[in-house]
Design a protein around this nucleic acid. Structure first.
Lengths: 238, 238
DNA sequence: CAGTGGTCTAGACCACACG
DNA sequence: GTGTGGTCTAGACCACTGA
């Protein structure tokens, strides 16, 4: 008898998942736990990793489902392009939801990033991007109020602040992005329909104009498994 | 009475952590749980996020400790350089441990990545990099056996396969890295002295020579909070 | 050895989905 | 309403640290 239910459990789960067709529903957690001989807590812990890879989808009140071939969005990081542009290139169906546009005064972080005084008026745009009706990214853009007005987004906004600014003719040049991995906070988890604490790939970026002004400070949260970011690195010589 | 112990708990923990000096030990988990009015399981869950940020360090058998100013390694991704080179530039003390060098035949993945036949002889080099005696990265390099022999690493190896190949004069040009976020598997967690399931930033890379041959296929796992990777992105024009 | 964090269990209650 | 996943509890046992 193993002291290590967890390793066995992961292997068992992997087999179970592989044996089921896409869209199938797993047995309920209490049933499956009994069937696999572990407690529900342990089962849930083991499921987390499969969920992060995008192989499982849990929906409260409905059940846990097998996810088939996920629509992977692969992109290089050398060039900044919107998810919409990327999706168009890959011929994927992407939609926007949970849009929120609000004015707010600058906090310490945003003020420093945008090189403004604390309390300066800002516009905060947040939304969830979905592929095949599955939330895959949560995007938050923060801009100085003089750069973007709420009314401007009422008509043509399709989810990308970048595309909007480009279409308007802003002289954008580069973006500087910090890349990290994080756990989903409760609010982000809710938006992305994942569990609090699940792993996310996070980009924090500043968007610069030709004159060097920062016009957009953004946070982007991506569910791993749906995105593949890559970068080509030159070898540094000594 | 909150329905949501978790949010309160995170705030309480943040205060507690901020109020303690670096190096201090927290009360034991059972004690702290009682003190904060939650179960031990909930407390541990809440601690995970602080641990991922590098603010806490748990050591089995010893206790949970406050981590002061962590040695953050910041690096751009445009240029490939070893952690050793990076640390030297930042004047940080980095050391290597848990070195393992072994020969093994190519599996399907490695064979494809290195453009070899399945079963071809390979060399696998793995090690843990530590900063200030704290494990911060786990690195695995896989190379064709004809590129690198085990004996070559016995003397001069200081932790970087890249630096070794460069010093030897190999005509390396670029590396292509995939960036993702993942949960620590049991073995990686043990190496990095974190918990299974904790969040990691993961780079999977191929290293190319001038002739286009792949000479190194590598997996790198970084604890977020100790690393800040950034990239400058050019704005794509429509 | 005593005390710590690491793991797992069994059971409870809640919020939500769907018929 | 019924059944699902989401959260939390209380307690047990193990592996490890350090005096």
């Amino acid at each position: 008898m193993p002291h290590f239910p967890f390793q066995r459990l992961q292997a068992d789960l992997a087999k179970l998942i592989a044996s089921l067709p896409a869209g199938a529903r797993l047995p309920s957690e209490p049933d499956l736990a009994k069937q696999l001989g572990v407690s529900r807590a342990t089962l849930r812990e083991a499921m987390r990793m499969f969920e992060a890879q995008g192989l499982l989808r849990r929906r409260q009140g409905a059940g846990t489902f097998i996810v088939g071939q996920l629509p992977v969005m692969e992109s290089g990081l050398e060039v900044l392009e919107s998810i919409q542009t990327l999706a168009r290139r890959l011929n994927l169906d992407v939609s926007m939801g949970n849009v929120s546009v609000e004015k707010l005064p600058a906090g310490a972080d945003a003020a420093e990033a945008l090189d403004l005084a604390v309390g300066s008026p800002l516009l905060r745009v947040s939304r969830v991007m979905s592929a095949d009706s599955r939330p895959v990214a949560y995007l938050v853009d923060i801009l100085p109020a003089d750069v973007l007005q709420p009314e401007e987004l009422s008509g043509q906004f399709e989810g990308s602040v970048l595309d909007y600014l480009l279409h308007r003719g802003d002289p954008l040049t580069v973006s500087r992005a910090d890349i990290t991995a994080s756990n989903a906070t409760a609010d982000v988890a809710k938006m992305l329909e994942i569990q609090r604490g699940d792993v996310l790939l996070q980009l924090t970026a500043k968007l610069f104009t030709a004159s060097g002004r920062v016009v957009d400070y953004s946070f982007s949260y991506f569910i791993p498994g749906y995105f593949k970011f890559h970068v080509v690195r030159k070898v540094g010589r000594a």
